[in-house]
Design a protein around this nucleic acid. Structure first.
Length: 558
DNA sequence: ATTGTCTGCCCC
DNA sequence: ATTCTGC
DNA sequence: GCAGAATGGGCAGACAAT
């Protein structure tokens, strides 16, 4: 397949918002793809060049790609930056740069999908001194053989942002439409995706073996399964109403602030997977040891949350616990410093028996049979069924007092539904008092927001009469609110540098957040976790904004 | 040897 | 993670 | 109600620059 043909497909997908049109376009392309092109097409349409289970990174993102565009075209970095900032897409800037190239490659070979895909894959193998330059050269090499449209999607692929409006859902529908018949085709594709987490494999299987082949793909130990996710509840009562008609079939559990993990066990072999189904077994030898010692089942697949604790038995802030996740060297040192507890709350298979179609109540009794709790190492998630809302409310309070995030609410009769945020699991967390903060700086956005100052830096009053930054804001406003904000901010611009804009402190925003954390990044020494826009405080001047002392007080209080 | 910048189907 | 938008 | 996009803080690792 010529790369130009793949690009024609991307463009057609890009040209419509209608789901059905996207599915039809993609299905036709998948059906027409050659034997060895189906995988690359399924991957690149989602901006991915590796299968999800491959532990490899391209190691190229916006900065190095901008350099590659400069190398390939001779267009200056400043010009590329400027077009990037205007269009909000580095791929668009690449298209422009190729069109305005001041240097032509001596001989230009037409690109193929295969070459683009395989060359990008090679980037991951480069390591050591000079590797960044070699990555830049490799991307530049592709770009110098690309026409403007090819360059646009080549760059978007390298960055992993195709912006085609095609996600896993659309791709699954297209696979079904391309290779299968019948009403339940899409459901069969979805199920196969849930248990393999690999759309390329699913597409190949659907094409080569049809429906029967897909149905043969089952849950296997050491092939992680997509996790069932929770929806957000407005409050405890709302959550209970949402999960089940009958409050008697609701289980409330502590919601822990750690990392969601799936643990696979077969005798001595233990693997620990994250929510994105990455392996983190190496980072948690303590967890592996605890599982070996206390899991009594020979074979099982368990679901839970890993949480860090301090000497006093209090859960540590997520930012501290998170150090353990990416640690590669001196792991034992961190094992000592930040011990963790594995809180288990579900069982997906037990002694070879799949439990996906069983109600939660049944899965929980299998979980109970599968291991012996050991305090401080491996425990059941704290949870119960409650007779009335008042007792559930006090349970919720006890979760907060113990330093946890809130509660999960689960329907005891529901089956395990991988990959979906279904209404059978809800999470309830308390809302913090909002802060009134001043916009100190702003940045031009990308993609669909490229005409807006969509990233707003927030400051609180500091004792010197200035403003100390406590983070950035970029969600919570509608397009309309953002357009109005952008308009107003442009009246206060004092300096502009690339995408960054300095503004007079003039606009006060009401901002919601989950938590205040200690920050090494921001001037105030604090940062908001999950900040979002609530409203413009028209009634407040910058001098009325919240001060650093209030931020400090709230930090100490939580 | 130290510091700065970039990256991540990162974790949340 | 949260949130908004188009279907 | 779903799927998709655009974005938050902060961490360790990997190189590059000094």
């Amino acid at each position: 397949m010529e790369y130009a043909d793949a690009v024609a497909v991307y463009r057609e997908l890009d040209a419509t918002d209608a789901d059905l049109e996207k599915i039809e376009t993609l299905a036709e392309a998948l059906a027409a793809a050659d034997d060895d092109e189906l995988g690359p097409l399924v991957g690149t349409v989602r901006g991915k060049v590796f299968e999800p289970w491959v532990d490899a990174d391209l190691g190229v993102s916006s900065s190095l790609t901008a350099e590659a565009i400069e190398t390939a075209t001779g267009v200056s970095a400043a010009e590329i930056e400027s077009v990037w900032r205007e269009s909000g897409d580095l791929g668009d800037a690449a298209a422009w740069a190729v069109d305005h190239a001041t240097q032509q490659s001596l001989f230009s070979e037409p690109l193929t999908l295969r070459r683009v895909h395989d060359d990008l894959r090679e980037l991951a193998d480069y390591e050591g001194a000079g590797s960044q330059d070699r990555r830049v050269d490799e991307v530049a090499g592709l770009l110098s053989d690309a026409d403007p449209e090819e360059a646009r999607y080549l760059v978007r692929t390298a960055l992993g942002h195709m912006r085609l409006g095609v996600g896993d859902g659309t791709t699954r529908e297209a696979i079904a439409a391309a290779f299968l018949d019948g009403d339940e085709a899409a459901a069969a594709v979805e199920r196969a995706h849930q248990v393999t987490n690999d759309l390329r494999l699913v597409a190949r299987t659907a094409r080569d073996e049809g429906r029967a082949g897909l149905d043969d793909l089952g849950v296997e130990l050491f092939r992680p399964v997509q996790m069932m996710l929770a929806k957000k509840a407005e409050g405890l009562e709302d959550g209970v109403e949402s999960v089940a008609d009958d409050p008697a079939s609701v289980r409330a559990e502590y919601k822990y602030d750690g990392a969601r993990v799936q643990v696979h066990v077969d005798g001595d072999r233990v693997e620990v997977y994250t929510r994105r189904l990455e392996t983190i077994t190496e980072q948690f030898p303590d967890v592996v040891a605890a599982v070996r010692e206390h899991v009594t089942a020979e074979r099982c697949l368990l679901d839970g949350e890993l949480v860090g604790y301090d000497d006093a038995g209090e859960p540590v802030p997520f930012q501290d616990f998170s150090r353990r996740i990416k640690r590669k060297y001196d792991v034992e040192e961190l094992v000592e410093e930040i011990p963790v507890v594995l809180h288990l709350f579900d069982a997906l298979s037990h002694e070879g028996e799949s439990l996906f179609d069983r109600p939660l109540s049944s899965r929980l009794s299998h979980l109970e049979d599968a291991f012996t709790p050991a305090d401080g190492a491996i425990e059941r998630a704290t949870g119960h069924r409650f007779e009335d809302l008042a007792s559930m409310r006090s349970f919720y309070q006890s979760a907060l007092e113990a330093g946890h995030e809130g509660v999960m609410l689960k329907n005891l009769e529901a089956t395990y539904q991988p990959g979906n945020r279904v209404g059978y699991v809800m999470k309830a967390k308390p809302v913090m008092e909002p802060l009134d903060l001043v916009v100190t700086r702003a940045q031009w956005s990308e993609g669909r927001r490229s005409d807006y100052l969509g990233r707003l830096f927030l400051g609180c009053r500091d004792p010197d009469g200035g403003f100390a930054e406590v983070g950035r804001l970029s969600t919570g406003y509608t397009d309309e609110e953002l357009a109005a904000l952008t308009d107003r901010l442009t009246d206060h611009v004092v300096a502009e540098d690339g995408r960054m804009v300095d503004v007079d402190p003039a606009i006060v925003l009401e901002v919601e957040y989950e938590e205040i954390q200690a920050s090494p990044e921001y001037g105030s020494g604090y940062a908001l976790r999950f900040p979002r826009f609530l409203d413009v405080r028209e009634d407040l001047a910058p001098a009325d904004a919240d001060g650093l002392e209030r931020v400090e007080r709230l930090y100490e209080k939580q």
